[in-house]
Computed example of a mutant assay.
Amino acid sequence: MSCTLLLLLLALSKSSLLKSEPDVKSPVIFALEKATLFMESQYQDINLDAVLGFHILQGYLKGILEKSSSAHESLAQHAQIESLLRKLSSLIERATHFLAQNDPKYFKEFEPILGPHFWVFPQSWNQTDSLLSYTAFGSTKCLTEEMSDSCLTYLLGTWKESGKSCIVTSTCRNIMTKPGCSDYSLSHQLFYFMFADMKGCSDPVFLRAQYYKNIFCASMMKINLAIESNGFKFSSRDLFMENIIFCGMSGFSDFYKLRWLKAILTWQKPKEGCFGKPGKDFKQTSAGTDQKHLLRRIKRREMLFADGCSAHNTAVAVGALGGFLYYYC
């Protein structure tokens, strides 16, 4: 047997295995249906970050329907995804209306990322190289949330009325390429380069975009593996899922580990359909500490609901789960 034929058979075997595995897709679709029910009950109150998570999910669902065929997708699952997409699209439209009223300044600054064609999803896949990860991490606060928002609005062109887009200030260039950053600072550095890709920005710093993505996601993989080895502490779950969203969208398939998918599915609150503070079976002392830690990390516009649901937690969860579904479909 020729080497070429062998490689082709292996590729077809892997493709067939991934696309025919019912235990991967069905639980994810079910979890996303429950999360959409949560959005239906809270769409008037959730923040922009939460709407963005569901908006990314919407994009993944559209992508799945575009690439799926009856040979690879069961008719029942196809119908489920179509139904979920219709419901989600209606809810996003309504939620966006309330966002514009509830937080008009922030909404105006980031309205472009809720556009129908802003996000582009991977058509080919790569894997991280552990040799490219940082050997040691420096500050977890390389950049503030305000700095990140400011740099992103310069790319979007929303930094002022009728502002020019794709502007890269020296401050933004320095903080977004600073080595050794960790946690949310690191994920926001990657987010910056993702925004530049979506906008088609041509500043010289973006000529090395893939170089930075390779380093950032190798380092984010290192962080996620450490979170896993530490037992997925509640305070780390939000970051863990955010890393999966951003690096998955950047084309790194090794973030879609089945054992990570199984862990994420267990974090969903079965009654509410959301993600957030663990239930009564979670140790109280740990929960209290973790909740305070989480509040220091998440977006300043985060909303925690009385039932323990977190808008940001739910947003990153549905974004990550959408990526898993997209990859395995």
Rank of each mutant, 00 (worst) to 15 (best):
Q123R: 10
S124G: 01
S124D: 06
W125H: 03
T128I: 04
D129A: 04
L131F: 09
L131H: 12
L131M: 10
L132A: 07
L132P: 02
S133K: 15
S133E: 14
S133H: 12
S133C: 12
Y134C: 00
T135K: 15
A136N: 11
G138H: 02
T140E: 12
C142N: 10
L143T: 12
T144C: 03
T144L: 03
T144W: 04
E145S: 06
E146V: 13
E146L: 12
M147W: 08
M147S: 15
M147Q: 15
S148L: 04
D149I: 08
T153S: 15
T153H: 04
T153G: 09
Y154T: 00
Y154R: 10
L155P: 04
T158M: 07
T158R: 02
W159F: 12
W159L: 10
E161P: 00
E161S: 13
S162I: 00
G163Y: 13
K164I: 10
S165Y: 09
S170A: 13
C172T: 11
R173Q: 15
R173D: 11
N174R: 13
I175Y: 11
I175S: 05
M176Y: 02
T177S: 15
T177H: 07
T177I: 04
K178E: 14
G180I: 08
G180H: 03
S182H: 08
S182P: 02
Y184W: 12
S187Q: 11
S187G: 03
H188K: 11
H188M: 05
H188E: 09
Q189H: 09
Q189F: 06
L190H: 01
F191I: 06
Y192T: 08
Y192M: 03
Y192L: 05
Y192A: 07
F193Y: 09
F193A: 00
M194P: 01
F195G: 05
A196I: 06
D197I: 02
D197R: 15
M198D: 05
M198A: 15
